[in-house]
């Protein structure tokens, strides 16, 4: 968290531009791809790596195998292996897939990580209790950028 705030601060000073985050409802998808950084700042691949393996955050390896993450136990087989993802997809496409994969792959099982409403019986995290929309998105704008930065390192 602290680390994130620092990165953001640096980015803003470096570019000199006002830092603007795109809200989940305001993201525009172009054939499933999202051109601009959602946080307005660059992503940190190391932070993205942590989001990928953490059960409480992206938990991406629940469904995807990633050779570079083999130090984290248990990779799933539900989605495709992500080795070489950066050779197959552009940065904008990867951002779109992580933010809302349903825009790229119609009806996909992959959850939308940057979406806040439109759910059936939305719950309060894993409590089984009801929650009212809008829900906090599964990942923040910066966490999505971090994951995208990490995915961009997956070259074969």
């Amino acid at each position: 968290m602290k680390h994130r705030a620092l990165t953001l601060a640096c980015a803003v000073t470096l570019t000199g531009a006002a830092w603007a985050e795109t809200a989940p409802e305001a993201v525009s998808y172009d054939y499933g791809a999202v051109a601009e950084s959602l946080s307005g700042a660059p992503g940190d691949p190391e932070a993205g790596r942590a989001v990928m393996v953490s059960r409480g955050l992206g938990n991406c390896i629940a469904c995807h195998e990633v050779t570079a993450l083999s130090d984290a136990p248990f990779h799933g087989e539900v989605g495709p292996m992500l080795d070489g993802a950066a050779d197959r997809w552009t940065e904008a496409e990867l951002r779109g897939i992580v933010a809302n994969a349903k825009m790229m792959f119609d009806g996909t099982m992959m959850p939308a990580f940057y979406k806040t409403s439109g759910y059936i019986r939305p719950g309060d995290a894993f409590t089984g209790k009801a929650a009212t929309e809008p829900l906090p998105p599964l990942l923040t704008a910066q966490q999505i950028e971090d994951v995208v930065a990490y995915l961009l390192t997956l070259k074969e």
Binding site: A62, P73, F74, H75, G76, E77, V78, P111, A112
Partner: peptide, 18 residues
């Protein structure tokens, strides 16, 4: 956004994490 069918019809036999 997961149905019973996503896990137990489309993905039985696959690992989902552990």
């Amino acid at each position: 956004e997961l149905a019973c069918a996503n896990c137990h019809e489309d993905n039985y036999g696959n690992m989902i994490r552990a």
